[in-house]
Amino acid sequence: MNLEDKKKIKSRLSGEELEKLTQILNLKYAHISGERFFTIEDENSADVILMRVILKNTKESFYYPVEGRIKKDGLTIPAKEAALCLIDYIDYYFDEFFQTKEETTLPIDWHDFSYEGLSFQLRGQVINRHSEKLADGILKH
């Protein structure tokens, strides 16, 4: 699919909606997220709905992207509703994550989950992007 076609696919959540959800997420966990904050990304695709909730600090020495994806094929609810459902479940995961003092982790590779009758996949891995960038810099030299 070329860039032009990609641009034609409407985002399931508007920029304002994403911003609002991000604000709520940061407010909800302000008391326990420390110096970290959340961002939400919505990836466009013809076949798959993919939502990414990232918990990170400014330096990105803690960078935790939690991704959820649902195949559009066979979906019985609107894409937007499915995207919100994914976000709700990822929020539920982060609730457990903080409650268990950050010990509840997700599989690194795509794993099946279901919630409210919807089947989807999740994955997530904590990385140190800051160190990775430094290492990349060293290797390039």
């Binding site: 709520i24 407010l27 008391h31």
Partner: peptide, 24 residues
């Protein structure tokens, strides 16, 4: 899970009183 993020309001979080400040 008591409330869904997609249905959550910032007002409700403020009313609860314990979430919105980074505490030491």
């Amino acid at each position: 899970m008591t409330s869904k993020l997609s249905e959550e309001l910032d007002l409700a979080i403020y009313e609860r009183g314990y979430q919105s400040f980074l505490l030491k």
